[in-house]
């Protein structure tokens, strides 16, 4: 469903991403790994419309999306998280989930003021969906707290829930396990797998936690110094000499 072809991104004299290609099929979890500064997040930023790539193509469900503004891409169903949690901190947990459904609700001021049955019905639906996802990520008891007051791991989960209520087709997670303790990482692991299995969402993730990556990925792409180094199943990557060298340094 997503195909990145020979993507390049140049910042002045620096070629941060050089001819990277990757693809994501439906019902698949794909990881992008690589040492720090390899250009993983730059690839992400091009895919999500944050940067306009200087070369190459990005196809989402057959349509070229490179260079489109980020909000248009997210409306196509390609939704991302950031390395740093970006919740609406001064809104409650449940409001964070409701506001993300704004577009689906197709707001009309008049029907809102008059509280027409149609308005109530849609409002109820979005509340139901929010309640469902709160339960799914174990935050039901926190529903009316300000999102900024949650523990870090809870904020991470809320962020994923907030992506999910927008009903994405492809979810892009930038270091979802960063800053999580082992127990939280294990929960995250199961959550991501269930996104694929139960909700039929494809996932692309950048992650440094290798046990997580090896556990959940169907395929892995390795990038080193902006260039593609290897791609394959977790087993293939584990045995790849180039990858081992890049990670451990040449002996």
């Amino acid at each position: 469903m997503l195909e990145v072809q020979n993507l390049s991104m140049r910042f002045g004299g620096l070629l941060a991403v050089d001819q990277v290609s990757l693809d994501v099929q439906e019902h698949e979890i794909v990881a992008i790994i690589g040492p720090n500064g390899a250009g993983k997040t730059t690839v992400f930023n091009c895919m999500s419309g944050f940067y306009k790539p200087t070369g190459g193509k990005i196809l989402f469900e057959g349509n070229e999306i490179q260079g489109k503004p980020d909000y248009k891409i997210s409306r196509l169903g390609l939704v991302r998280t950031f390395q740093h949690v970006r919740l609406f901190n001064r809104m409650t947990v449940v409001e964070n989930l409701l506001v993300a459904q704004h577009r689906h609700l197709n707001t009309n001021l008049i029907s809102g003021i008059l509280k027409t049955p149609n308005y109530r019905e849609r409002e109820q639906k979005s509340l139901d969906r929010a309640a469902y996802w709160l339960d799914r990520v174990g935050l039901t008891e926190m529903a009316n707290r300000d999102a900024g007051n949650l523990a870090y791991g809870q904020q991470r989960r809320l962020e994923i829930a907030r992506c999910m209520v927008t009903e994405p087709k492809l979810l892009m997670l930038d270091e979802p396990a960063a800053g999580l303790n082992p127990a939280e990482t294990k929960d995250l692991n199961q959550l991501i797998i269930s996104l694929k299995e139960d909700y039929n969402v494809s996932v692309v993730l950048i992650e440094h936690d290798m046990s997580l990556v090896m556990d959940i990925s169907d395929r892995i792409n390795v990038i080193n110094q902006g260039r593609p180094l290897a791609s394959g199943t977790p087993d293939e990557i584990r045995r790849n000499d180039d990858v081992i060298k890049a990670y451990l340094g040449e002996a």
Binding site: D70, Y71, R75, V79, F88, M91, V99, H102, L109
Partner: peptide, 24 residues
């Protein structure tokens, strides 16, 4: 309480994110 009010608060906290989440 209202939906637009909620969106207003979201936009005032993080305009870029609100936009990404599909708020006009």
């Amino acid at each position: 309480r209202s939906r637009i009010g909620r969106a207003c608060r979201a936009v005032s906290q993080d305009l870029g994110m609100a936009n990404l989440l599909g708020i006009d």
